[in-house]
Nucleic acid binder design. Structure first.
Lengths: 163, 163
DNA sequence: GGGCGCATGTAATGAGTTACATGATTGA
DNA sequence: TCAATCATGTAACTCATTACATGCGCCC
């Protein structure tokens, strides 16, 4: 593949695991070439501009499968930036917290809707999509739980007030 | 809090959402002080070394609640580095893939066991833990699904071979 | 003809990590 | 007494982003 194509592939298929910018893709490919992991040659299709097409070298294959085996056998946990706010939920009123969490729920639903509208991907790439869908489904259950907890906190406060 | 205390707090409570190194914590606190979001003063308890204790300023409060509201209402999805390998599962044999995925399952189980042994956290901090537990539970279901798919792929290959 | 997408890069900047440097206290 | 933990920071380095720069082809 050439740089643009590769960056596009990652954008469309590996969105859930990385967020690689195009400029960085070119930079990284160059570095990989310097490391001897890939080789490049210029190619032209039709009247399109010249493209630098890369192919992997034996040394690159070795590094790749080593990384692949490592990735598959270990488990590098996901990081949840959305949980940071939860830790400080007590810093605002329960009523406002509830309002904000309802907004978040909509955001999750929209994301899930987006995902389900994506056409099926080939091979194991589809598995990534299904994983995301399963995950977001659980996230919906979780946010409902959070909303429920916040609502019962509000009820409790109202009760305390009326006594 | 002072820098060490704060970095420790994040390490113990916000592990799921960030991975802040101590040296960076000090650096960030200094930058926040320059921005006028926090103020510091030296303090000493007993014979312990001098500590720089920070407290938030009104300007800091404002930035904080703004960020908090933003975080709670939006949904910044988690990133799954572990999914990258899945995309290239076809690059190795199904038998080896299965072996590696079984290792990964153990890693997930161990993580989940670790989590369940952590003592209860105060307030909404406990919610982060519960979220992680719910998430890892789903991850176990998912990896079982992956293992199942890989096993049926192997069975299919053996059948093809014997025909 | 004009805007979008294709296609490649560079330079400045920003953010975070690692390694380094230091020294005191506490508990085994 | 010796290692671990508390406590704070600096400097070099790595890594990625943003903004910039360029130019062609395709489609409306």
């Amino acid at each position: 593949m050439h740089g643009y194509q590769l960056a596009d592939f990652i954008d469309n298929n590996l969105d859930a695991c990385t967020d690689l910018k195009k400029s960085n893709a070119y930079f990284l490919l160059e570095k990989m070439e310097q490391s001897g992991w890939v080789q490049s040659q210029m190619a032209q299709t039709g009247k399109r501009p010249q493209r630098k097409v890369y192919c992997i070298t034996p040394a690159g294959e070795e590094v790749f499968t080593k990384l692949l085996r490592k990735n598959l056998s270990e488990y590098s946990s996901a990081i949840f930036p959305a949980d940071a706010g939860l830790a400080f939920l007590d810093e605002i009123s329960s009523a406002e917290g509830l309002e904000l969490l309802l907004l978040r729920k909509e955001a999750i639903k929209n994301r899930l809707d987006e995902l389900t509208s994506i056409p099926e991907h080939p091979g194991t790439l589809q598995w990534l999509l299904e994983h995301q869908q399963l995950f977001l489904g659980t996230e919906l259950i979780w946010i409902d739980e959070l909303i429920g907890r916040t609502q019962s906190k509000i009820k409790l406060q109202n009760k305390d007030l009326s006594e």
